[in-house]
Computed example of a mutant assay.
Amino acid sequence: MTDPVLQTLTPVSHDLGGFEVRRVLPSPSRTMVGPFIFVDQFGPAVLPAGTAMDVRPHPHINLATVTWLFGGKYAGAIDHRDSLGTFATIRPGQVNLMTAGSGIVHSERGPEAERAAGPRLYGMQTWLALPDGREEIDPAFEQQTDLPVIEDTDVRAQVIMGTLWGRTAPTTQHSQTIYAEIMLQAGGAIPVDASADERAVMLVGGDGRVGGVELEPFALAVLAPGAALTLTSREGGRVMLLGGEAFTTRRHVWWNFVSSSRERINQAKHDWDEGRFPKVPGDEDEFIPLPKVPNTIANP
């Protein structure tokens, strides 16, 4: 019998002062799962009163970011601003898709109204590489709140992107993508769609098993392609399912830039260093400088 889990990717953790971020993609042994080329999980955390997450303006190219916050005890919010003039408050249960395309700048900060009590943070940020021929599309931002929910007695699944369990999210797909949050009560079970080229699951709370294999908390379990598998939990758990179309062209990652072309990334580095990216209206005074040594790099 084929092992249901091809490989398990262990995240690298970073303490950002009050909350922990666990980065599992890109990793030394694997760069992508479907279009997903960057997977960060953060929290659960309650930040000290008077503080907040403050990610200063920074650039992206040739990718789309997906921000997803979890509900429950650690439900929080993030204020998003970008160089298109967008202002949006990100909350649990809604997907926020920012397409960088030819280039965008954005910031992510804790809402002022939540700082005094100590903001709560618990969620995911992922990047999707844009497919060949679409890497340089126009930048865009969308926020979707009417997402499909599949419920049974002991399972609740929300489709963030793509088609799963016969339901399709309205979120724009630049390539075939699946992404969902699954909440399992004690004894809960749900089938994992087998049609995607590549699939992976991450246990972000409680306990879970896939195809009988125990899931490690916050690790990314890459699943065998085409295998009919079931996700289960003994005591209850929260699991993220992600994947989609396998890319045949290599993608390079350097800091916040993703591209099929090293030359395009080098151009973006020079453009940011020389101040040629647009400003973020309402957040023009600060920015993150180009790092000498980036904390995210793959296929340099």
Rank of each mutant, 00 (worst) to 15 (best):
F141V: 01
E114G: 00
P191L: 06
L184A: 05
A100C: 07
P191R: 07
R167W: 05
R134P: 00
I104T: 07
R115V: 02
L121Q: 06
E142H: 08
P131C: 09
S107E: 08
D152K: 13
Q158T: 15
I178D: 01
R109G: 03
A180M: 09
P191M: 07
T126R: 01
P170Y: 10
R120L: 03
A194P: 01
Q173K: 07
Q143D: 07
A169L: 00
A186I: 11
R156T: 12
Q185T: 04
W165I: 11
I137S: 15
A196Y: 04
E198I: 10
L97C: 05
A116T: 11
P170N: 08
S195H: 05
G162T: 02
A169E: 01
T99C: 10
H106T: 03
E136I: 08
L130W: 09
G162F: 03
E198S: 14
A180V: 09
A169P: 00
H174L: 11
L130H: 08
Y179H: 12
A140F: 12
G166Q: 03
E151K: 15
E198D: 14
A113M: 04
M124D: 01
Q185Y: 00
A196Q: 04
A186P: 13
T145F: 11
A117P: 02
P139N: 13
S195V: 00
G101Q: 13
I178S: 04
P111C: 03
D152P: 04
Y179R: 05
T153A: 12
I178V: 13
S107L: 03
A189V: 00
T145S: 15
S107C: 11
S102G: 04
I137C: 15
Q143N: 12
T153C: 02
M161I: 11
L184F: 09
D193K: 00
G187M: 14
Q176H: 02
V192Y: 09
P119T: 09
G110P: 02
